[in-house]
C-alpha cells in the first residue's frame, strides 16, 4: 500500500534519520502517522510498515499493545480525550468526562453509532495549568466546562 505523497515524504525523511540498519526506530512514529491517515493500524498498515522497516509482525504487535494512542479499531471522526488526572480532577475533569458520556451516550473507549465521536478518559495531557483540559484528535481545549463541551460537540456536529 502507499500513503499520501506528504506522508510518504515524511516517512522517507523519518526512516533516514535513524542509523543505518536501525530503521526500526521509525516504527512507532510510522504507525502513528499511518493511523492518522488510514484511521487505524489495519492489517495492511502492519504489513506495509513491517515490510518497509524489516521487522516481524510480532515486533509490531508488541508496540501496538503497549502504546495507548495506537489503535487497531478506527475511532470516531472526532476522538474526544478528556483528562481526569490530578490537576484536571481538582478542577472538574471527572465531571466533564461524565458529562461527555451522558451527552454522547457512550462510555469510555466507545464510539457513537454514527462513527462521529469516540470518547476516552486519558491520563495527564500536560495542560495542568489550564485545567480541565481535553483534546479533540490533536487539538487541545483548555479551561473546559460542561457548557463549553456542549458547544464544542454541537459545533463539531454542525461541521459534518
Amino acid at each position: 500500500m502507499t500513503f499520501s505523497p506528504e506522508l510518504e515524504a515524511r516517512f522517507a525523511k523519518m526512516i533516514a534519520s535513524y542509523p543505518p540498519g536501525r530503521q526500526k526506530g521509525a516504527l512507532i512514529p510510522m504507525l502513528l502517522y499511518a493511523q492518522d491517515e488510514v484511521g487505524a493500524v489495519t492489517d495492511e498498515v502492519i504489513e506495509e510498515v513491517s515490510r518497509r522497516l524489516n521487522v516481524s509482525r510480532v515486533e509490531v504487535e508488541e508496540v501496538l499493545g503497549y502504546y495507548t494512542m495506537l489503535t487497531r479499531e478506527p475511532r470516531g471522526k472526532y476522538h474526544l480525550q478528556i483528562c481526569t488526572n490530578i490537576s484536571c480532577l481538582l478542577t472538574g475533569g471527572e465531571e466533564l468526562f461524565q458529562h461527555a458520556c451522558r451527552k454522547l451516550g457512550i462510555g469510555n473507549r466507545e464510539k457513537t453509532p454514527d462513527g462521529q465521536f469516540s470518547l476516552e478518559e486519558v491520563e495527564c495531557l500536560g495542560a495542568c495549568s489550564w485545567a480541565p483540559a481535553m483534546q479533540v484528535n490533536y487539538d487541545f481545549h483548555y479551561h473546559m466546562t460542561p457548557e463549553k463541551l456542549d458547544q464544542l460537540i454541537d459545533s463539531l456536529r454542525k461541521l459534518q
Partner: peptide
C-alpha cells in the same frame, strides 16, 4: 529530528 511517542 523530532520523534513522536504514542502514549506512554
Amino acid at each position: 529530528s523530532t520523534h513522536t511517542g504514542a502514549g506512554s
